[in-house]
Write a protein that binds this DNA or RNA. Structure first.
Lengths: 347, 347
DNA sequence: CTGTTAGCGCTTTCAT
DNA sequence: ATGAAAGCGCTAACAG
């Protein structure tokens, strides 16, 4: 078929090349290279096969193997905009690490939020016989295709409408508890919540993550005896612009602003700006804690105390669960409070 | 083999299922579904095959096809830390889009800068018979394995030591020219360069991109009749911290600071902070232009005028080149000056 | 202890 | 105008 032994015209070394060089059948070579136990093949045969494989630089053709074994050693990672946003990196990194540790390679696709794109992506992945699927979302709203894939599926940072799918989520309830506890421990008894969605939005549009964050924040602060001042946002988007605006409104309000929980880091960044302009010092005049531990906090002075989203661990977890064909249900990953310079004991 | 026709126990619909339902041979079914021209198969046969495929929900097994055709319709994307950094998103996104348009699915791997990891990743990808490889770097230093892969390879944002490989790079020379031109056009005749590497570093450690950026900046400014003040960084890293420090040093220097080029956005962000503290107004007292158009510029006020790195286009380009088996050489992607509020006509 | 044989699902000559 | 048969590279019964 192909001129071998000297590289000339050789396309790629195949198992039968190894076998013939070792003077054995392909079967024997296969058994030995796959370390199959209980096949009484001689020590010598082992040596010869390994030597031949080594010398020839043999590498198995995983498409061929997969065709036979029904295992491709690949996993599919489908995301809405994960590859694009700041949040994305850590999720993908965690997933990649977990996949690599298990000798799997990961396909990454991005659907840009289009459900039709998601269907296409899933088809493409299934056509390539991925062993498992991770469906990630940054918006928090996951959707599954009508016809359920035949391979294990794990949702990453989102829940399925029907909930009959494994879903990896941050433990927002506990994360928010930590934020509340932190301010209470510092002696604060009045807390402005920056970026609370309107009640109607909270019920209708907010993700379950946000809902839990808000609820846990309120209940923990109130139980701790603190007054809670809700400051809603003008726009629905949690960005620096609206954080700036909301903080300004808070300062103009009747209740003095001494402690603030920003619903995410971008809002906090905007609030920093507003406080600076108003000559309100962080943390002397006001303590501020927020959520995410976004990369942008590196640009804030003083350092922002924030509850980190455990995206990397989540990504890793999702792959682990997917490859172990786990049962449906929620898998919560702990959030961790990062204490930095923006919070201080109440005067 | 498998009970079909009613879904019970069926693993997945195969081409022979389609063929038998259409009352034809697999050959015919294959020919028809692949739209092979010149095979005089009847109109009716076509109809029956398409109908059968549709009804059964047939999807080809791409591993099987690939085994036969030696084409996997996949491409491998190997990166040092692309999936983790802010720069990464756009590169991956561009690559993903280009791949999708060409019906390819993309494997993504991350080597975390370890050469050994890169070798492992390349092996894994080659074992899965990717049709092409894109090797991306954010550090700008690409390295290729000893034994060159047999599939087309394109370097993304890096050059190979030996240069005998296609490489996609930003057109730094022209980007820097635009930045210089912009300040000159605004009437500035003294420009502080923030973040210039020391001469020795520039020669030894800097990437070709940085070298071109610096050289083009200097030569264009000088040709335009401007005085150039080089402000080096304390540390080698281009971050906000060192930008802050360097800007402070510039202000303390003898030459008044009226126009600044920061070598990247992070440095610019640090400079913003230093200027603010020194009560130096941007853009009234000082104009500032930088490079990258990083996401962080969203948090800066006034908006930062910056020369955008065309990462998305570069990612797209790399995939396009890889799939068209292009020749070695440099492929430059144009950079674009984004004018925002940080630059103003010289007083 | 080792080899023969039969596929995995697909494409592709080559016959008919 | 259609089908039989071979084979991509691998694994896994089943015989010797």
């Amino acid at each position: 078929m192909v001129v071998r032994e000297d590289g000339a015209m050789s396309s790629r070394v195949t198992l039968s090349d190894v076998a013939s060089r070792a003077g054995l059948s392909v079967t024997a070579a296969s058994l030995i290279l796959n370390g199959r136990a209980g096949t009484g093949l001689s020590e010598d045969a082992h040596r010869r096969v390994f030597a031949a494989a080594e010398e020839l630089g043999y590498r198995p053709n995983l498409m061929a193997r997969g065709l036979r074994t029904e295992k491709s050693l690949t996993i599919g990672f489908v995301s809405d905009r994960v590859a694009s946003t700041r949040y994305a990196g850590p999720m993908i990194r965690g997933a990649l690490r977990a996949a690599r540790e298990r000798d799997h390679t990961m396909f990454v696709t991005e659907t840009e939020g289009e459900p039709a794109e998601q269907d296409r992506a899933l088809e493409a992945l299934l056509d390539r016989r991925v062993d498992a699927l991770v469906i990630a979302t940054v918006t928090g709203h996951a959707s599954l295709p009508e016809r359920r894939p035949t391979v294990p599926v794990v949702l990453l940072n989102g829940v399925s409408p029907d909930g009959d799918c494994a879903a990896v989520l941050p433990d927002e309830t506990d994360g928010a508890r930590q934020a509340a506890r932190h301010l209470l421990d510092l002696g604060h008894r009045r807390v402005h919540l920056l970026g609370i969605p309107a009640e109607s939005d909270l019920r209708a549009r907010a993700t379950v993550q946000v809902r839990r964050r808000v609820e846990s924040l309120c209940s923990n602060l109130q139980e701790g005896g603190a007054e809670v001042v809700r400051v809603e946002l003008d726009s629905m988007s949690w960005d620096a612009e609206s954080g700036y605006e909301a903080a300004g409104r808070a300062l103009a309000g009747s209740a003095p602003v001494n402690a603030v929980v920003a619903l995410n880091d971008a809002i906090a960044a905007g609030a920093y700006e507003a406080f600076r302009e108003a000559r309100v010092s962080i943390p002397d005049d006001v303590s501020i804690v927020s959520f995410d531990d976004d990369e942008i906090v590196n640009f804030l002075r003083p350092g922002l105390t924030t509850v980190a989203l455990p995206f990397e661990e989540m990504g890793r977890r999702a792959v682990e669960l997917a490859l172990s064909e786990v049962e449906p249900g929620e898998y919560l990953e702990p959030m961790r409070l990062q204490v930095r310079g923006s919070t201080k004991r109440s005067a």
